[in-house]
Amino acid sequence: MHELSVAGAIVDTVVRAAEGRHVSAVRLRVGHLRQVVPDSLAFYLEIVSRETVCEGAAFEQVAVEAWLRCRGCEESWQVTEAAFRCPACAGSDVEVLSGEELEVESIEVEENAACTA
């Protein structure tokens, strides 16, 4: 349900980074904890990028696994379901190592050959 606003934030970020150049491809890193439905995000990205420099760009979504670490006993584990208590010591002081990304990693832009030395 939040993919529309996430798509908006992504396209804004891409447009800023593109500095007026046309964008042909975008590589995204999307953390598991973001609860993004890939198809839904792809759908909204296509719509939101219309009439911007990234209209028609190929958006690639790279899924990032969620890993947590217990500060109490140093155990680390991958989260697949909603379980955030330490499986080893049942501790609650847990830090997120990865899985919260919503990152524009790179973009591919079109430049005039004349501009390059």
Binding site: S24, E103, V104, E108, N112
Partner: peptide, 17 residues
């Protein structure tokens, strides 16, 4: 016209933050 890859590495929520 040619294509150039640009590393961005920016969280999409940074602008809001």
């Amino acid at each position: 016209m040619h294509r150039v890859k640009v590393r961005v590495v920016e969280d999409a929520l940074d602008a809001n933050t």
